[in-house]
């Protein structure tokens, strides 16, 4: 049978709507693609899926019935990995789960379940890293601004942590790679897009944008970081394993003075 290409809008609801469509139409051979990265198959049939919250919710409810809490968040985590082909893996996982009497999310002998669990684990690790590595800088208009470039799309996962912790300050965490951010206005967190000047260097603290005291605290933090190190125990290999170099760019303590 011919493979159908299903194109969705890149959101989790969109993906779940696609799954709904697959089950409704009893399709067996499909390829699910995000509209931003979709490749036109020359000889295949393309269907554009419309995101419908109600259908998405129905699928998600089914998932929650069929999987443990851990299993369903693994699905969501894996989705956020944005790894190419992950949608098809997820669909495979869900088909299997829906067809079984018992909960299957510990059945690692099933290849898709094992793969999803592994992907979810990497996404989880990235989430923790971002909770640790976001560095806020105070802007002139008194907003704490942090920029990140995570390997995976973890902003939705870290929102709760930052909201609980920084309840009394306005903050923005901006994902430069994906071009969107979270903005907390002391009440709620909203998604936001920002237009930055061309060639804006996120790693520099420019006094056109940032408060004067920001420079002082960054300096103090760098001094602290240096002073708390014990030279005779130096172990750069261990250091880099904990803080891989690709994250250094945005760490205040790792900036050249």
């Amino acid at each position: 049978m011919e493979t159908k290409h299903l194109i969705y809008d890149g959101t989790f609801d969109g993906f779940l709507s696609t799954v709904f469509y697959v089950f409704e139409q009893r399709l067996t051979s499909v390829k699910i693609q995000n509209k931003f990265t979709a490749q036109q198959g020359l000889f295949s049939e393309n269907v554009t899926i419309i995101t419908e919250e109600e259908k998405a919710n129905r699928v998600w409810k089914g998932v929650k019935l069929k999987l443990s809490a851990q299993g369903s968040y693994q699905l969501y985590y894996a989705f956020l990995s944005e790894i190419s082909g992950v949608e098809d893996l997820l669909l495979d996982y869900m088909r299997y789960a829906f067809g079984q009497q018992h909960k299957v999310d510990n059945d690692y002998s099933h290849p898709s379940i094992l793969k999803i669990a592994q992907i979810a684990k990497s996404v989880g690790r990235e989430k923790h890293r971002m909770e640790a590595f976001v560095r806020f800088r105070l802007t002139k208009d008194q907003i704490y601004f942090g920029s990140i470039e995570p390997d995976f799309n973890v902003l939705p996962l870290i929102e709760k942590h930052f909201k609980r912790r920084y309840a009394d300050q306005k903050w923005v965490i901006y994902d430069i790679k994906r071009g969107y951010g979270l903005f907390y206005d002391l009440e709620k967190v909203d998604l936001m897009h920002m237009d930055f000047p061309e060639h804006f260097d996120f790693t520099k603290t420019d006094d056109a944008f940032f408060a004067m005291q920001e420079f002082e605290f960054q300096k103090l933090w760098q001094d602290y970081f240096k002073a708390t190190n014990i030279e005779s125990r130096k172990n750069m290999k261990l250091h880099i394993r904990h803080v891989p170099k690709r994250y250094w760019k945005y760490l205040s303590e790792k900036q050249p003075n």
């Binding site: 640790a132 970081f225 014990i230 290999k237 261990l238 904990h242 803080v243």
Partner: peptide
């Protein structure tokens, strides 16, 4: 929470 290591010193200890 579990307590986060926000950074690591060059001797590999949690900050």
């Amino acid at each position: 929470g579990m307590g986060i290591c926000h950074s690591y010193t060059e001797d590999g200890r949690c900050v």
